[in-house]
Structures are given as structure tokens and as C-alpha cells.
Amino acid sequence: MLELYIVLILMIIGAIIAVETKSILSSIVALGKVGLGLTIAFLILKAPDLAIVQLVVEILTLIILIRATLGRDVKYTKENQNWGVKFLSIILIIIFLIFSYNVLQSLPEFGNPILKVADYYIENGMKETGAANLVTSVILDFRAFDTLGEATVLFTAILGALAVLRKNGIKDKDTKENKGVQGD
């Protein structure tokens, strides 16, 4: 599992660069590096489904983020001068890491899962659904309610984005206000 450690450390370095770089565009590119590292980690962890989805989703995230920053006057961010906030955050994160380290001791050792639910899926998934890809058989047959909820969340998010970005309503409001001003 040495390669997994290497990929994770590279991801952590990429995340630090993404957070600390002053140039926004470099920061977005570093985020893309973290996502591609995650893709390789999924491949090492034997999850090819997730690797495909993560790869294409990462590209789309990058395009959307670059679209948000291009053409706007935000090439470089200013450094935060408020040292109190930084100090408090670092203390909070250190406490969080200490607690999480203690909690992680009680988890099963890496590589030996103790979840018994999945045994049923692995044994009977092929017989009951006829799908060779067990992940698909879980998301679309055994646990289709999850997917229904996911579809609802996706629908709501897209609807929200369209509502936030709509143009017509704002134009109407402007013209009404202008008319009102003229009328007065």
C-alpha cells in the first residue's frame, strides 16, 4: 500500500498549494491536481466506477471554476491580516485532529472491513438483479431510494442555480422601477 501513501501525500501537498497560493488561477489548477490524485487513489482502491466519474466531474468542476474567475478582476487575493482568526482556526484544527486520532484507534484496521451488510449484496447481487457490476446493482436496485434522493438533490441544485442566474426577472424589475421613478 506504499503507492496509496505516496498519492495521499501528494494530494495533501496539492491541497496546501491550492489553499495558500495567491494567484486564483494557480489555486484552481492545484485543486485539479488534488482531484486527479483522488482518481488514482480510487483506482488503487479497486473502484473503477468512481475513478471514471471522478475524472470527468473534476474536469467539469475546473471548467466551471475557471469560468467563474476569468474576466473578473480577481487575479490575486489579498492576504488576511486578521491573525486572531488564523490562530483560533489552527487551535481548533489541532484539537479536531487530536480527537480524531483518538477516535480512529477504535476503527477496524485498514484492509479488514467488518461491515456485514455488503456480504449479502456480494453473494446474491448477481442472482437477484442479473447485473455483473455490483455497484450498479446496489445503486439502482437494492438502494434505489438513495438514487431517487440524489436525483431530487440534483434537480433542486440545478433549479437553484438557474433561479439565481436568471435574467428576465431582474430586467422586468428594473424597468418597473424606472417606470415608477418616471411616473413619480
Binding site: 473503477p48 466506477d49 475513478a51 471514471i52 466519474v53 470527468v56 466531474v57 474536469i59 467539469l60 471548467i63 442479473g130 447485473a131 455483473a132 457490476n133 455497484v135 450498479t136 446493482s137 445503486i139 439502482l140
Partner: peptide
């Protein structure tokens, strides 16, 4: 081929959306 090989509706949907993008 989502039910035989890796892939499925999510991956295929994102790839096709990316082709139009």
C-alpha cells in the same frame, strides 16, 4: 454497458454533457 462494465448513468451523462460543452 453500465451493468456489465464500470460506468453507468452518472459517468455517461457527465461525458455526454462534456462533449456538448
Amino acid at each position: 454497458h453500465g451493468h456489465i462494465t464500470p460506468g453507468g448513468g452518472f459517468a455517461g451523462g457527465v461525458i455526454i454533457a462534456l462533449s456538448f460543452i
